[in-house]
């Protein structure tokens, strides 16, 4: 188990990334993170949203990492405001939805 007083990036099953200080964990990988923040990355932009103290249920944990301070934040990414990243995220979701619509139409055709 990764255990340190430095920030640890946590990947959740729904795709979200949370960075926080790992305070505690158990055999299910239930985690307690303090000073947590969600990092949203869209394309080459990223933003961080403060969350505070969080308890994460183990089943939602995909991966808990150990940060390399020299490569933090990830090189090549540009920090933007929360509003800007949410906007970019919405645009990305819209694009995904369009793909889904095209796919659904294709499924319909293949049934005939």
């Amino acid at each position: 188990m990764v255990c340190s007083s430095t920030a640890a990036p946590l990947q959740l099953r729904d795709g979200r990334k949370i960075i926080g200080t790992l305070c505690s964990f158990d055999q299910f990988a239930n985690l307690v993170l303090s000073g947590a923040k969600e990092r949203i990355i869209v394309g080459q932009q990223y933003s961080e949203i403060p969350l505070g103290l969080h308890v994460v249920r183990g089943e939602n944990v995909v991966l808990l990492g150990q940060l390399d301070a020299a490569r933090e934040p990830p090189p090549g990414l540009e920090l933007v405001t929360e509003a800007a990243i949410k906007q970019a995220q919405r645009a990305e979701r819209e694009a995904e939805k369009m793909k889904g619509l095209i796919l659904a139409r294709f499924d319909f055709l293949s049934d005939i």
Binding site: M1, V2, P9, Q11, R13, K17, A29, R39, I41, Q44, Y46, G58, E59, V61, V62, L63, L64, G65, Q66, L67, D68, R71, E72, P73, P74, P75, G76, L77
Partner: peptide, 16 residues
Amino acid sequence: YPHMLSVRACFVRGSV
């Protein structure tokens, strides 16, 4: 997966 660029070691939950 740009968010993984700064990670050099990790714990992976068996179930995933």
